[in-house]
Design a protein around this nucleic acid. Structure first.
Lengths: 209, 209
DNA sequence: TGCAAAGTTGCAGTGACTGCAAAACTCTCC
DNA sequence: GGAGAGTTTTGCAGTCACTGCAACTTTGCA
């Protein structure tokens, strides 16, 4: 290996993964998700179909580009939050940090994904199906901070609320521009935080109401 | 047609649908979801494979047995709730009523589904992917009651919270017995209602505490 | 009974996904 | 620079979910 900690092998893998993700999103945005075959995606990324499936378990997964390190990373942030921070707040900040990073690193990809998800909102739901272990990890971190046993509903609900918030925010975001995705997720999480029994006030578009 | 309002055709369709749903759940519980082919399910229900796909869009859908009338039914309950009832409360009652009914009508099926979902929790997530129009319907009903525009996050979030509550409750329910699914869903919805910033107290198993 | 509408079926085809074993590549150590 | 171990890529053959279409059967109604 070389001194930078990342070998040629690792670099190539990252590049291939990124190429496949980009190819999937680009082609799906261009001509519709199910008018694109894995064969075409693989060709676009210059690898074999079999290699596509070495990187992603499904076409769905490649479209969202689920980062396998995101779960551990977020769990780490929750666990290492300052002492006074509540479990929900720690989770909230972890989610928002992740999204901000993601958008800074790949805003262009998300703009293309938006096109696809506008046509096929169900893909976003399906994308969360494969993240069971990540959810497990996050729930454990939240549970630890809350002092609740593994089996309790609460940690799971907090994590599920995060998925739901993200999902709804993206759906809303896809409707029109002029709203930052990060803000929408934050808003959604706040509603979950303060409780859904409180109906939020309605802001008119003009602004001053 | 006959005077009872349900023709022979309708009765047959209901029976076929139920048979397919039962066959799917039974076989999946018996030998594992993906060791069962649609061909075997169809054979068990005494219809052709093609007919299976006339009733269900996918194997997943047949496992959960998503009732296409559930969405409209729930939306109707929300809309026709008494005047003073808050949007969230109306939604909560609608969900709980639906679940109670479902469990009363098909408790045995749910016990089998539980076996399957213990092995493959992701199937529950995927099951919600196909219910986009139902969610749309429910969100509209909640939005109307809340006096919020179609585009607002809130109605969508309430509905998504319902899915999340159901999902988490089932997951928790599959862990051990001694808890009623309906109670768990109710508990989950209450947590969403009052806000996740409040960490619930921890009840010990002994019970009295 | 006889016709129209609805439901069922077989068939042929597409495409996602998997296991396997061979080939190509990268790393390390000498 | 080259041998050998470990990793990644690839082709191939196979399975199975799912779809459109066009015949065939059943049901509803006059």
């Amino acid at each position: 290996m070389n001194q930078s900690g990342e070998s040629l092998r690792d670099r190539k893998k990252r590049r291939t993964r990124a190429a496949l993700e980009r190819a999937t999103v680009r082609l799906a945005a261009e001509r519709g998700y199910d008018h694109v075959t894995v064969e075409e995606i693989a060709a676009e990324a210059d690898v074999s179909v079999r290699t596509f499936f070495n990187y992603f378990a499904s076409k769905d997964e490649a479209l969202i580009g689920a980062d396998p390190e995101a779960g551990p990373r977020m769990a780490g942030r929750i666990t290492s939050a300052a002492d006074g921070v509540s479990p929900f707040e720690a989770y909230r900040q972890s989610v928002l940090a992740e999204i901000t990073d993601e958008l800074n690193n790949a805003r262009d990809l998300w703009l293309l994904r938006k096109e696809v998800l506008m046509q096929r909102p169900d893909l976003l739901v399906r994308a969360f199906a494969n993240s069971a272990e990540s959810e497990q990890l996050l729930a454990a971190a939240v549970g630890a901070r809350a002092g609740l046993p593994e089996s309790h509903l609460y940690p799971r609900l907090v994590v599920a609320a995060g998925s739901a918030a993200f999902r709804c925010a993206v759906t809303r975001w896809a409707l029109d521009d002029n709203v930052a995705l990060g803000d929408l997720v934050g808003e959604a999480l706040d509603l979950f935080g303060t409780g859904l029994v409180h109906v939020p006030p309605h802001h008119h578009e003009g602004g001053t109401s």
